[in-house]
Simulated scan of single mutants.
Amino acid sequence: MTSMTTPESTTATASMTTVTSERVVASATTVASTTATATAVPPRWVVRLAHLTALTPLPSGLWRIAAALGIPVGFTGDGAMATVTFGSWFSLYMIALTLFADGLGLLTFGLVQRWGEVSPRWIPLLGDRRIPTPVAVIPAGLGATALTVLCGMGAFGWNDPDTMGHPDSPDGIGYWIMTVCYLPLVAWGPLLAVVAGHYWLRRHRAGRLHSDQHRHQTLRECQAGSLHSLAACSPPRAHIDNPHTFLGAVGARTPRQCASCGCGSVRGGCGRGEEDRRGQDRRDEVP
């Protein structure tokens, strides 16, 4: 018995294939847009380390604010620290330095929060866009290196004659209060380096995961027959007996196209090959 294919059934099959392809493409587009702005959640210990890093400049900043307000901190003589009064240029400089240092410390939160990976939506032209990893890692790495060197040198020369060893410098309780307030700065650079290093590692792993998801989406689209370009289904065509059959699996985990029509069929050949075979069978049956 010869099977007959009516135009209505062919149209219905084509319509169902089109609807399926559109659904797969829409699903893949939704997943891709979600993945593009998704962020990896850092572990709890990294979040705590980031909070600790942001707090390291706070004690020294409070000490400078107290000095800028005119509160005696132990300096004597005619130096700027001994004669500072609130509203003077030196007091404004100390306040500005404190705000700048604390602001740099708060930027550490960007290495463990979403706004450090995807720019906030309220930023004009750049809102809700993924931030390249080097934009955050390079400044953080350079800052961690500079802080480690400068604060380390300051710690080793803390009691030099031109610093805390000077006769006009604080002594007794004033010396210990200032030392305790500035001591956390020694850990600022190393802590920032650890948080920035984990940020790079987390973004690198997320990028590899996104690449794998993109390959799977391409495979699903090719299975639905929605990719018709040779660039999308990358492997080259090969000469085979039936030009409409599938060329086989690909080691790079990307699907191959149909050999001649480029329809993206991945299982048992595309519909055109089946229709051609049926048409040939009908022609052979005609006397």
Results as ranks from 00 to 15, higher is better:
4 M>R: 03
13 T>G: 07
20 T>I: 12
27 S>C: 13
34 T>H: 11
42 P>W: 02
47 V>P: 01
49 L>Y: 09
52 L>I: 11
60 S>P: 03
73 V>A: 09
87 G>M: 01
95 I>T: 04
102 D>V: 09
103 G>A: 10
112 V>E: 01
121 R>Y: 00
125 L>N: 05
128 D>R: 13
135 V>Y: 13
137 V>L: 13
139 P>V: 10
142 L>H: 03
143 G>F: 11
143 G>T: 13
145 T>R: 03
148 T>M: 03
148 T>D: 05
152 G>D: 08
155 A>K: 05
169 S>D: 02
171 D>Q: 10
172 G>Q: 03
178 M>Q: 03
180 V>Q: 00
184 P>V: 01
186 V>R: 00
186 V>A: 10
191 L>R: 00
201 L>S: 09
204 H>E: 12
207 G>A: 12
208 R>S: 14
208 R>Q: 11
209 L>A: 06
214 H>L: 11
218 T>S: 10
220 R>D: 13
220 R>Q: 13
221 E>Q: 15
221 E>Y: 00
235 P>W: 06
248 G>R: 08
249 A>G: 15
253 R>I: 12
253 R>A: 14
255 P>K: 07
267 R>D: 10
269 G>M: 13
272 R>G: 14
272 R>A: 14
273 G>V: 08
282 R>E: 14
283 R>S: 13
286 V>P: 05
